[in-house]
Computed example of a mutant assay.
Amino acid sequence: MIRVAVLCLLLPFAAAAQTDAGAEARSALSQLEAASAKLEQAGGARDRVRALTETIQAFERGLGAVREGLRQVAINEAQLARKLQAKDGEVAQFLGVLQGIGSTPDPTALLHPDGPTGTARAGMLLAELTPALDRRADALRRDLQEVQTLRALQVDAAERLQKGLTEVQSARTALNQAMANRTDLPRRFTADPVRTGILIASTETLDGFASGLAEIAVDQISTTPESMEAQIGDLPLPAQGLILRRAGEADAAGIKRPGIILATRPRAIVTTPAAATIRYAGPLLDFGNVMMLEPRANSLIVLAGLDVVYGEAGQVIARGTPVGMMGGPQAENSEGISPSREGAGTERSETLYIEIRQDNIPQDPADWFRTDKDG
């Protein structure tokens, strides 16, 4: 009886966390399925660029959610497996007690040394403990089933993730072609390549280049400055990512910049946060490919560190229009879905520098963007 009482103190494993992780992973898979459906619809869309842009963004959200779901599932499955392994000895005793109760004993085995009174008390104790043992058995059964479910979910999610990686790459390729074929964008000015080359050659800083942008424009059409007061502070970040460094924070080399650095996944799509005129698109200094957007007179949004840029100086683009893509591996595969890799932050290997300038004076991007809603 003492042995049975000790075993009844075995606490049931908490399955709620595992169930939540499974639900999150399934929800993420639904996002990925929705993105796949968007890709099919994008092929026949009238505005193919917009459709493909929304499709890629949906894939990026879905892939990120699936990666995070897989990571959480793997963590919970490992925790549950360790708990079960640690309880191996108690579980063996527990099963032995259940088998003992379920077998047909010798009638004399039920006699208590203290006589009829002791036997009656032992019987009453056993009657009270049996439901508790049943509950422990049910809890153990649920935990073991949850491990099997989580493992199966990991296999299914990994397969769908690989398919999603292939589909998003197809969408990116299609977007590259659609942007190359686009000829319907209005123009505010025409860039003079000679003046542009001279400005780049004579520029040593971003400040100097920004101040000379007006010199490279010819045949400029004056427009009514747009009001952005309602948008300032609520602009979406140009790409899905995490704020790695804010304005004025020193990097590893001790260099402080007035802009923010956004860590993104490889090949992340970059879009304009507001309707704007492209003032410059191309390589600049040590910033890699740079996109300079003018959302209103005397204001500039500088996006630096892109691998590919879309559009030409002088074109007017709508909010949400793709302006480029980040660098990184062209082909993504199952090596990129390791739960340990996702949790370590190495999946966000690309960095986008974002700077805001008003009257050629840097502004804090945190005052312009919704930086508390990183993707």
Rank of each mutant, 00 (worst) to 15 (best):
L10N: 08
A14I: 03
A17K: 15
A21P: 06
E24A: 06
K38E: 13
Q41I: 01
A42L: 03
A45S: 12
R48A: 03
R50E: 06
R50Y: 01
L52K: 10
T55N: 07
I56V: 06
R61T: 03
A74I: 00
A78E: 13
K83M: 02
A86Q: 11
G89T: 09
E90A: 08
V91T: 14
Q93D: 14
F94G: 11
L98K: 11
L110D: 01
L125F: 03
R135S: 14
Q145I: 08
Q154D: 08
E159K: 11
K163C: 05
L165G: 06
R172H: 05
M179A: 08
R182S: 05
R182D: 11
L185P: 11
R187E: 05
D192N: 13
P193F: 08
V194W: 14
I198Y: 06
S202G: 10
L206K: 15
F209H: 08
L213N: 04
A217G: 12
G254T: 05
I255K: 15
L262A: 13
T264D: 05
T264Q: 05
R267P: 02
R267D: 06
T272G: 15
T272E: 11
A274T: 06
A275S: 11
A276M: 13
L285H: 10
G288K: 13
M292S: 13
Y310P: 06
Q315E: 15
G320T: 11
G320I: 05
M325P: 01
A331W: 00
I337K: 00
S349P: 05
D359M: 02
P362T: 08
